[in-house]
């Protein structure tokens, strides 16, 4: 039962809420309590929703809850402000022979709100961000 963990991650999964160190300007996602510069003085910061693909991998034998979606593509995305996050790439063609033809390194993406997985037959649906090619 993942429900309590999912609940606590809502600000990040739904709204991309990060925090920014007031002393050195470094952004943390998920938010941290102490910056690498030692400061504990942060301000709320919301990540931009556009970026580009830095790198990606194709997972052909994913975990149980992702089996129906296989293969799934996971990418490191560099957002417009330089923050890097990992996100699933969605809205891909259902049949792909060569992913390198579809997803180019540096390709522009937008973050979208999607169902990540469902907790078995009768559990909750877990929502959050993914990215898709623009």
């Amino acid at each position: 039962m993942l429900t309590p963990r999912v609940y606590t991650e809502i600000p990040q999964r739904y709204r991309l809420e990060a925090n920014k160190c007031k002393a050195c300007g470094k952004v943390f996602f998920p938010p941290r309590l102490v910056c690498t510069c030692g400061s504990q003085d942060f301000e709320p910061y919301r990540l931009p929703t556009r970026g580009k693909i830095v790198t990606y991998t194709v997972v052909r034998t994913p975990g149980f809850v992702f089996k129906l979606q296989k293969p799934i593509v996971l990418a490191i995305v560099e957002l417009e402000d330089g923050t890097r996050i990992m996100a699933q790439v969605t809205d891909l063609p259902p049949v792909v022979e060569d992913y390198s033809e579809i997803i180019k390194i540096g390709a522009e993406v937008e973050l979208v709100f999607r169902k990540i997985f469902s907790e078995q037959e009768a559990g909750i649906h877990v929502y959050g961000y993914k990215c898709r090619l623009i």
Partner: peptide, 16 residues
């Protein structure tokens, strides 16, 4: 709808 889309995700995008 994509396999990760439903009324909630569609509503969110339209609302956004």
């Amino acid at each position: 709808p994509g396999m990760d889309e439903d009324t909630i995700t569609i509503s969110y995008m339209a609302a956004k």
